[in-house]
Design a protein around this nucleic acid. Structure first.
Lengths: 359, 359
DNA sequence: TTGTACGCGTTATCAG
DNA sequence: CTGATAACGCGTACAA
């Protein structure tokens, strides 16, 4: 191993062997038009013969001041992160937008809902950072600022001097709540996403809402309440369960709590499709038919939503557009563009089979 | 932007300002024990004041000859890759095994089932590569060899001088097929994973099997056939549909084809849980009850398998162990260890509600 | 603590 | 045109 390293040929090795300068060998790889074809072939042949695999990527990065990668920061570990189907779709769109084959994707998993460690960010070889739905007190964000790296924030939080892609969360939630209210539901419960990254879940107190670190959750909550308020349903009368993560299991748990309340909600608004699918499961387990006795609404419109039984009524956000926009913003930031105004992805309500008029 | 770069302070800037040498400033960050606390504080303070965020990661990599990242190569794009829940779990285990906070994860998505482009690999700043279930003719593998990077192969294919983690695919498939045969099933169909990365799916011809590029698919097929053969069921009598990817939709399509055959299979062996869930859906849509009229077996035992209705009988592989083993092998390869023998992850059959005796 | 010799390329600028 | 010279880029590590 060590010997390998020592023996590893460099541009100079090839140059000496061929009898040209290092610059010429470099040109053979990066600017074929700068030298004659014959010489280039001789160089490449010699390189192959010596087992030289081309310019070292790290050295090249140092010289060009381009790390050649995009860092993507996640709130959680990979497993929980990718159990969120919305993320995969978004990330795929992002990577195919950016990946000209030149750039790779550096994944910085989060530690326990708090996002990546500051040190991971300090040591990351990257030109630009994309943060995906981090809490507003994530240490990683401070590290990005310290390094003065261009930053694109997806969803949340607000960070000064960064570009941002967000979704009309409040508007989407408003549509969802208005829909069930219009169907006559007056007892409505909410299964929400996290308010803080502390892993705490359960019925939500007003204080906890005040100390929230996730803007998206607050926005969706506000949208729900606004629409329900218009029907004279007060916020106090709307039970709200916080799920500590976006997993079916947690939606199921929250819904089970809601269904045990008196009066039992006839409609459940969920802040994600995964939570909603868990809620449907909970209803089934309690012998409540969906949508006969309980209506359930999701958020995101992931593929699983239309696959579900019954197909899920949900708020659609264009995940591909979101990823593409994030990618384009990142590219633009790389070119030194100013952050500009946040890009907002629109939403609309997909009415399917999981909601019905109250009986 | 450009100005930023030009003005960006370096170790030297700080050193001059504080009146010490560059080496001392470097030590202040990396070897605090090498200098007095007071001096260190003065250095850090000056750095902060000048907006210096610590040693440049790329320069450090050049000096230490450590890129500080693990490259992970995927067969497909991120979206289809992560629609495979088994991958998320495995990758999470891998990243938490390796991530001492020092190392990050470089994701190299594949292009169209063929794995990453060779050029992506040539330019990747990485110390070690983990390849996840690539076809044996993937160009990326040749690039890894050309760069002489340590390689850990997960699942497939065989690559000389690389470490490997695999699963007892043949044994697992054998268990699955033996199970249904033991339940009396004599008309058995197979919904398999891809044989090549060409995106082709459908009923499989013998020639196509001969030209296969995915060993895992062949192993599982062999396991199925072996167990069925022991019951006198010949390979020719076992219809085999190839799904071009691991998605429910494709399992559904394959099962639909099987259910249209004469005689109709009473049991369907699927090479993944996702395919199996699609098969159950297809059965339901045709009014065939599972397991009453049709038995379905999966492979992997992802969380969705036990969530399914009915809960899926499937071959369990320990995905966490797989990821951890891959991570440990990668770490060992980094230390210059020799590849060693392949590590094989054991399997066992989880009998649940999707299989029953033939009527 | 400090000199200082690397590490491995890129990219003007220059000369033949 | 073709190819060479040489000035960076930013740290690390070891001997002094």
């Amino acid at each position: 191993m060590t010997q390998d390293r020592e023996r590893r040929p460099t541009l100079d090795t090839i140059a000496q062997r061929v009898g040209v300068s290092r610059a010429t060998v470099s040109n053979a790889y990066n600017r074929p038009d700068q030298l004659s074809g014959a010489l280039r072939e001789r160089i490449i042949a010699t390189a192959k013969q010596l087992g030289y695999a081309g310019p070292d990527p790290v050295a090249r990065s140092l010289a060009t001041k381009q790390a050649g990668s995009v860092a993507f920061m996640l709130c959680d570990g990979l497993s929980s992160a990718f159990s969120d189907p919305a993320l995969s779709i978004m990330l795929d769109a992002l990577s195919s937008t950016m990946d000209t084959g030149e750039r790779s994707l550096l994944l910085l998993p989060g530690v326990s809902g708090d996002g990546p460690r500051a040190q991971s960010v300090m040591r990351a070889q990257t030109d630009v950072v994309v943060a995906y739905s981090l809490p507003d007190n994530a240490p990683a964000l401070e590290a990005v600022r310290a390094r003065d790296l261009p930053l694109v924030v997806v969803d949340q939080p607000f960070v000064p001097k960064s570009a941002r892609v967000r979704v009309d969360d409040r508007g989407g939630a408003y549509l969802a709540a208005k829909h069930v209210a219009g169907l006559g539901h007056r007892h409505v419960g909410i299964v929400g996403l996290g308010l803080s990254a502390d892993g705490v879940g359960g019925p939500v107190s007003p204080q906890r809402i005040e100390q929230a670190h996730f803007e998206v959750t607050l926005d969706r909550l506000a949208g729900y309440r606004e629409a329900l308020g218009e029907q004279g349903i007060l916020a106090d009368a709307v039970p709200f369960w916080e799920a500590p993560g976006n997993a079916r299991e947690m939606g199921r748990e929250g819904a089970r709590w809601l269904f045990g309340l008196e009066p039992r909600p006839t409609a459940v608004l969920c802040m994600s499709d995964e939570l909603a699918l868990g809620a449907i499961r909970a209803a089934n387990e309690l012998g409540l038919s969906v949508p006969g006795e309980v209506s359930v609404v999701g958020f995101d419109d992931t593929p699983a939503a239309s696959w579900a039984d019954p197909p899920l009524t949900t708020v659609r956000q264009d995940l591909v557009a979101k990823g593409r926009q994030a990618g384009e913003l990142a590219l633009r930031m790389l070119d030194g563009a100013r952050p500009g105004r946040p890009v907002t992805i629109g939403v609309d309500l997909q009415v399917r089979g999981s909601t019905a008029a109250v009986v």
